[in-house]
């Protein structure tokens, strides 16, 4: 704290700390905390016991009223009057409880996740890991080529060719694949020329109904998020190191294993984290590829809990589960690659 005041003076430090507090507390921590809180309670409606008790109290009340009307004794009437008032109040309380259910804290929103939903959750994580691994295998040579194995105009053009689809809007990249796999899409259209399909007769191959369609579009949409982190780290590698390794007689696989990949580690880690996080949390790809019909991706379940079932508590629990999965993944990758958070965001 003193360092800050020394550097910027008290006035500016106050402004800076205020801005930082608004952002970190008000826009990051507090929203996450309220989401966690929302996931930890549910409204429990009145149980059958409550209904029975209300009925019984009503019976007691009518008996007391009957006694009151037929009693001549002033003292007894006074006692009954108090009893009637008490019962009336009790009924009001019970009915209020029945109407306005109790807020019950616990893990019920997590433990009540049905088998199907849990299965979809596991499947989403599994597919996201597959997308990540595939992207890593496909992109490493590309990043290597762009950063180290080309120069001059060729390198510039290759970089440009990678930046354009990377920067193009995500939805349009998905749409491009929708057009290819659609019922009247490119593949079905081409197959029609060979007489395999007949679009006018609605005889086509329903690629979109297969989960593979979501998977293919997802790989296409997020593959470049693996290229650029690796590219950025490889670009800082001194090419002389590769030359030296080669002169000393190292084979190509050995150069990659001992020189290039160790240097690219932070980039590979960031690429894996980004690709996994984007695929596991993607709402756009499954939603567009299945036209909102399929429920194969966990993000769609979350959306439905919030905006269709209107159950924000379960929705928050699902969203938090997804967040937890991503945090575990980040932690695992950082441990495996032996990097710290500081290395991630460079």
């Amino acid at each position: 704290m003193r360092k800050l005041v020394d550097a910027y003076g008290a006035g500016i430090t106050t402004v800076l700390l205020l801005l930082v507090a608004i952002w970190t507390l008000g826009m990051v921590i507090a929203p996450q905390a309220t989401m966690l809180d929302q996931s930890l309670w549910s409204l429990e409606r009145g149980t059958a016991d409550l209904t029975v008790e209300i009925d019984r109290t009503y019976n007691e009340l009518s008996t007391a009223k009957y006694d009151y009307e037929h009693s001549k004794d002033a003292e007894a009437r006074l006692a009954l009057d108090i009893r009637i008032q008490g019962l009336t109040q009790k009924i009001a309380e019970l009915e209020l409880k029945e109407k306005r259910p109790d807020k019950v804290y616990g893990l019920q929103n997590y433990t009540r996740m049905t088998d199907i939903h849990l299965q979809i959750f596991m499947k989403t994580i599994f597919y996201a890991v597959m997308v990540t691994l595939l992207a890593l295998v496909v992109c490493y040579p590309v990043a290597y080529m762009a950063a180290l194995a080309s120069s001059g105009l060729r390198a510039t053009l290759l970089l440009l060719a990678l930046v354009i689809p990377y920067a193009l809007n995500e939805l349009l990249r998905i749409y491009a694949w929708l057009m290819i796999l659609d019922y009247q899409g490119v593949i079905n259209g081409v197959l029609e020329w060979f007489g395999v399909t007949d679009l006018a007769a609605r005889r086509w191959i329903p690629f979109l109904e297969s989960p593979a369609a979501v998977f293919m579009a997802m790989v296409y949409t997020y593959v470049l998020f693996m290229v650029f982190p690796i590219y950025n780290t490889l670009e800082t590698l001194d090419r002389n190191q590769i030359e030296a390794a080669r002169d000393l007689g190292a084979s190509v696989p050995r150069i990659h294993a001992r020189v290039i990949i160790p240097h690219a580690k932070p980039g590979i880690a960031v690429g894996c984290i980004m690709t996994f996080m984007l695929s596991a949390g993607s709402y756009s790809v499954p939603q567009i590829m299945t036209r909102g019909q399929g429920g194969d991706w966990f993000s769609q379940l979350v959306y439905r809990q919030f905006f269709e079932a209107n159950n924000w508590n379960i929705g928050a629990a699902y969203a938090f589960s997804l967040l937890a999965a991503c945090m575990v993944f980040v932690f695992l990758v950082m441990t495996v690659f032996g990097i710290r958070l500081k290395d991630i965001a460079r």
């Binding site: 989401m35 984007l278 949390g281 969203a319 997804l322 991503c326």
Partner: peptide, 9 residues
């Protein structure tokens, strides 16, 4: 490092 939908929600 968080999925976008988590931030929105």
């Amino acid at each position: 490092l968080m999925p976008g939908l988590i931030i929105g929600l």
